[in-house]
Structures are given as structure tokens and as C-alpha cells.
């Protein structure tokens, strides 16, 4: 594991709501979660970022008590998930990747059903149902079959069902996959609202723009936590040196040419341009231009830019992959 400054377990100030220590989950010979340690504080939006199969869902399922950890400890809302999953379940809301409400029940019936399971009754239930309907924008559609709702509505209804009992911690496993951009934005507004009310929101995603909304991010790769910190910290810390943007008329010739230069640590294609990581922009500028001219690639633009989260992501996963060959 790299010892970057980001690699620390810093929940910072405030009440700790989820604490994970050396968590390991193995399925046979396959290690899905490999010694992961972190903690979150109350009212935080905590993002889980990583490629598919990196162990995001497995970790969330362990925290919800759906899977048993092979070793290590996870404490959610003050209760150990392995020894007291029931106490944990009373205090969390969970929304899985797959839309998992009953398609053959109506909106209201689904809400009542989950309310019943969470033990929300009477006036409080109708108040919460009202809240959920308003939140999801489903007033007037209470009696529609859930199957007839479109993706964004279904997803907001699922969130409504998951938080009917006002849990202090909410786990959302890729909640926005397969939803249109507008609905995604609305959904994130809801998440921010909940966080302001003091709810800890645990959300996994592979959208970079969504990751920007999180207070803190944990970057997972092949079951390992390779970086942890606020998006801004990650962006700064991930790229060692300066990041330069290069626009050219021939990406292919350009990338071959600059990769041969000792000053260029890394070169990657971003859209129709190249992002180059160099030790120092001032020292690298001239050699790069020379090499490109030799390779008959015209420079349209070459300048220092601030790294984006995606740059950080690429850099971190690349260095993690280099540090440890594929098993």
C-alpha cells in the first residue's frame, strides 16, 4: 500500500457513525475486501469510488449485516455488524443497486409495507409517507402500480422506503445507475438535504461528477482501499508534480513521442487531448515542444491545469496497479 498523505483514517471532528477496522471478506480463494480501514462521522456524505468488482457492494453489504466479515471489525451506529446485526438494521436504511420494491404493489402499498417492517405506525407513518411522497414528487400517484413509474421516480420511491424510519445512517449502493442526468441531480439534492439533517449517507458510485458531491471519498481497487480523503485532497495529492494539458493534431504520434521523454512521468488520453504528468512544468515545456516537432505533431495548446478527480483516479489506480501486479 502506498503511504501517500491521503492514506489515513481521518474522520476528523464529530461523532463517529461507522468505524471499520481491518475488514476482510473472502469468497473461497477470492478476496473481495482486503484489510479495509476507515471511519465516517455523523452528517457526512461518504463516497465509495472504484471500478466494478472493486469491493464496493461487498463492503456495503457487510455494513448492512447482509454478509459476514471473514475477519476484522465493523461498527455501525455503535453496534458490531457481526455480533449484533439486528440492532444495526434498526438504525440504517439500505437501497441496493437493483431496484427492489414490489412492482406489483402501488406506491402507497410499498410505503406502507416497508413502514410496517420498520415498525413505523400510526400518525408517524402517515406523516413519513407524506414526506416520502413529497420528496419523491409522487403526490397524486399514490395508487399507481410501481411497475408503471419511470426510473427516476422508482429510485426516489426506493429511497423514500429505505428512510421511512428516519435512520441515522443510510447506505446507497450505486443508487443512480441507469437513471437520466436530471434525475441524478435531483437525487443528489435529496442526499445533500439528508446530510444537512445529520444523516450519514454512504454512497457508492462510479460517476466522477457524483463523487465530487461527497464530503469524503474512499477509493477502492481490487478490494483494497488505495486512497481516502476529501475530493480536493485527492486531486492535489494524487498527482505528484504538475499536470499539463496538450492539444495536438495527432494524438497517436504525440503520445508516442512524449512518453519517451524522461521528464514525462505519465501520459493519458482525456477526450481529444492528452494529460501529461511532469515533475515541473517549467522544465518540461521545452523538451515536450521539441519532441513533438520532431514527431511532426502540431501543438495547438500546452498549459498547466488543475487536476480533476478523474486524473486523480487514473493516477491512483495506475500507481496502485504498478505497486502490486495483478493477482
Amino acid at each position: 500500500m502506498n503511504s501517500t498523505p491521503l492514506d489515513r483514517d481521518g474522520a476528523g471532528a464529530g461523532e463517529v457513525s461507522v468505524a471499520v477496522q481491518d475488514l476482510v471478506k473472502r469468497f473461497g480463494a477470492f478476496t473481495a475486501v482486503d484489510h479495509v480501514t476507515f471511519s465516517t462521522r455523523k452528517g457526512e456524505v461518504f463516497g465509495f469510488l472504484g471500478p466494478n468488482g472493486s469491493g464496493k457492494s461487498t463492503t456495503i453489504r457487510i455494513l448492512c449485516g447482509l454478509l459476514r466479515p471473514t475477519s476484522g471489525r465493523a461498527v455501525v451506529a455503535g453496534f458490531d455488524v457481526a455480533s449484533d446485526p439486528e440492532s444495526v438494521r434498526r438504525r440504517i436504511g439500505y437501497m441496493s443497486q437493483k431496484f427492489s420494491l414490489y412492482n406489483d404493489l402501488t406506491v402507497l402499498e410499498n410505503l406502507r409495507f416497508y413502514g410496517g417492517l420498520y415498525g413505523v405506525t400510526g400518525a408517524r407513518l402517515s406523516q413519513r409517507i407524506n414526506w416520502a411522497l413529497r420528496m419523491a414528487g409522487l403526490h397524486g400517484r399514490e395508487d399507481s402500480r410501481t411497475a408503471t413509474l419511470s426510473g427516476g421516480w422508482k429510485q426516489r420511491l426506493a429511497l423514500g422506503c429505505a428512510v421511512l424510519h428516519r435512520p441515522p445512517i443510510v447506505f446507497l449502493d450505486e443508487p443512480t445507475s441507469g437513471v437520466d442526468p436530471l434525475s441524478r441531480r435531483q437525487f443528489w439534492e435529496l442526499i445533500q438535504q439528508m446530510a444537512e439533517e445529520g444523516v450519514t449517507v454512504f454512497v457508492s458510485t462510479h460517476y466522477m461528477d457524483e463523487a465530487e458531491y461527497c464530503n469524503r471519498l474512499a477509493l477502492l481497487m481490487r478490494g483494497r482501499l488505495i486512497a481516502l480523503g476529501a475530493p480536493s485532497e485527492l486531486k492535489l495529492g494524487a498527482v505528484q508534480g504538475d499536470l499539463m494539458l496538450l492539444e495536438t493534431d495527432s494524438l497517436q504520434r504525440a503520445i508516442e513521442a512524449v512518453r519517451k521523454l524522461p521528464q514525462v512521468r505519465d501520459a493519458a488520453v482525456f477526450g481529444n487531448a492528452l494529460h501529461l504528468v511532469v515533475a515541473g512544468a517549467a522544465d518540461a515545456n521545452q523538451p515536450i515542444r521539441a519532441a513533438l516537432a520532431a514527431a511532426r505533431a502540431h501543438v495547438l495548446r500546452l498549459e498547466v491545469i488543475r487536476p480533476s478527480l478523474e486524473d486523480a483516479f487514473v493516477a491512483l489506480t495506475a500507481s496502485a496497479a504498478a505497486a502490486e501486479p495483478i493477482r
Partner: peptide, 14 residues
């Protein structure tokens, strides 16, 4: 198979 079981499992039902 539908996935609703997972949702029920995280509720406090015994």
C-alpha cells in the same frame, strides 16, 4: 431472484 429479499433482510424483521 427479483432482489426484494435483500431489501427485506436489512429491515429489523425477525
Amino acid at each position: 431472484e427479483i432482489g426484494t429479499l435483500e431489501q427485506i433482510m436489512v429491515t429489523p424483521i425477525r
